[in-house]
């Protein structure tokens, strides 16, 4: 890894949970429709903030459900797997901030930025660093030292593919190469 050792990994930094995380009913699916909508919004925000802070691209619910995100051990309250799935579903359908990787709804891509936003971010970075008409491998783009300070460093390849596809559609990039040896040329 080329991550500079002077800076602690973002995953190790303690995450500051919002206040509702300490409110026991927050972990129970609310029956009142209005309350539930608010609850979903708050959960959605919490999940995205958490994933951004921890740089989580793929959220495996089965694993995360036992993590601190869904389990407030001090309150002895946890969100059930079904409720978490339901919240991800709401994030997917209402806000487009998540997507299931498989049909069994165990792993979800979490879009704290969605592919369109990532495409813009990557395009802007290319623009700033004057890398038009250069060819970069996807590995370079996400894991290379050049991008270490960038937000999209370490990006999940699936999200990267989607983002580059957006750029291709915009006519700003071209993806070529085979499975593992893909490269991208920016215009």
């Amino acid at each position: 890894m080329t991550t500079p050792s002077s800076r602690p990994s973002p995953a190790e930094q303690p995450f500051t949970f919002p206040r509702e995380y300490h409110f026991p009913p927050f972990f129970t699916r609310q029956r009142n429709a209005i309350t539930y909508t608010a609850q979903c919004q708050k959960w959605s925000k919490l999940i995205l903030d958490y994933c951004r802070a921890k740089r989580i691209w793929r959220l495996s619910l089965v694993d995360a459900i036992d993590g601190e995100l869904f389990w407030n051990k001090s309150l002895n309250r946890r969100l059930s797997l079904a409720d978490a799935r339901e919240i991800i579903d709401v994030m997917k359908t209402k806000e487009g901030r998540a997507e299931w990787v498989s049909k069994d709804k165990n792993v979800a891509l979490v879009y704290w930025r969605n592919p369109e936003e990532w495409a813009t971010v990557i395009g802007d970075w290319i623009e700033e660093t004057a890398q038009r008409n250069t060819v970069l491998t996807l590995y370079e783009l996400t894991e290379g030292y050049l991008t270490a300070s960038q937000e999209f460093h370490g990006m999940d390849t699936e999200i990267l593919q989607k983002s580059l596809n957006v750029l291709v559609k915009r006519g700003k990039a071209q993806v070529f190469g085979s499975e593992d040896q893909q490269g991208v040329k920016f215009f």
Binding site: R19, E20, N32, Q39
Partner: peptide, 26 residues
Amino acid sequence: AEERGALCRDEGVEGVRYWENWIVGR
């Protein structure tokens, strides 16, 4: 009261507890 949005529920191992609704408009 929950239906009116004034309270919210908290289902724990000891049963259901009702809280003032801090989720909506907290």
